Structure formats: structure tokens, C-alpha cells
Amino acid sequence: MPKNKGKGGKNRKRGKNEADDEKRELVFKEDGQEYAQVLRMLGNGRCEAMCIDGTKRLSHIRGKMHKKVWIAAGDIILVGLRDYQDDKADVILKYMPDEARLLKAYGELPENTRLNEGIANGLDEEDEGAGDDYIEFEDEDIDKI
């Protein structure tokens, strides 16, 4: 029988549940950074985010956060802007819901920002009627078919 050469199974690879993030200091933006809200996740470590300055940017999740900090649509994030590509940014930090509420209370986020709406905030005006894709038939129409 072969000897086990590893240091454990898949539970070791999963890691411990790190609860030290609960009481962390609130990080404000600096120059070259911007607050943004995630519109949708694209996969491959990327997401589409609407920045507070009104620009929609393709954001790349940095490797330190990848598979450790889970980002979903509607989350408030801090992105680092690129000098050479204005339509792309890098995700630096994800704010917890209570931190996002504090940012809004401090006036860092505009008042019209919806914090815990999820994907519904990312819909455009033309997408509002997209749920009306069904056709209603009368009994006479069904007989003709």
C-alpha cells in the first residue's frame, strides 16, 4: 500500500473560516480609486461594475481576493482605475453591507445608490418590459391551432 504523502484531505485545502474581517477599519477611496456597484458577474475573475462617476467598467478581481472574497451583483466595491485604460479597473476591496451603509451615511456614496437591491439595480430602462414575453390566447384561438 502506498504511503500518504500529503498533509490531509480536501478539508485542509478549504481553509479555516476567517472571522477576523468582522471588525476592520473603514477604507475610503484615494486618488486613482473609485467606488462602484457590481452590475453582473462575468466569470473568469471579472465583473461589470457601474462606478460612482457614471462610467461602466469591466473590473478584474485581483488574485488575493479570488476564491476568498465572494462578490455578487449589487455589492459595493472599491476599484483602482487604470491610467492607460479608462474602461477597465481592478477590484481592490469589497465592502460589507454595514460598511456600505456607513459610506452612504458619510456622504461618500450618492443618496440614490441602492445598497441591497441585488441584480434589480443593474437593469436598464429598456430591460424593464423584458419579463412580458408571454402571449395570451383566447379559447377560440386555441381551437384554430
Score class of each variant (00 low, 15 high):
K68C: 07
W70L: 09
N121H: 13
G107Y: 01
K104L: 10
G122T: 05
G129D: 14
E117N: 03
D124L: 12
D132I: 07
Y106E: 14
Y84N: 10
T113S: 01
V69I: 14
Y106F: 14
K104R: 15
S59C: 15
D127R: 06
K64Y: 03
G118A: 05
L109W: 07
D75A: 04
D98G: 00
E111N: 12
A100Q: 11
A89K: 03
I92P: 01
V91C: 10
K56P: 01
K104D: 05
R62G: 04
R114I: 12
R82K: 12
A130E: 09
I77D: 02
I71E: 08
D75K: 03
K68E: 12
L102I: 12
Y95M: 07
G80H: 08
E126D: 15
K64A: 15
G74P: 04
A72L: 07
Y106D: 09
A72G: 06
V91E: 01
E128M: 11
K104Y: 01
K88H: 07
R62Y: 04
A130P: 00
M96I: 00
V69E: 11
L58Q: 05
D127G: 14
E128Y: 10
L115E: 10
E99S: 07
A100Y: 04
R101P: 00
Y106P: 00
K68F: 14
D75M: 03
R114N: 09
K88C: 05
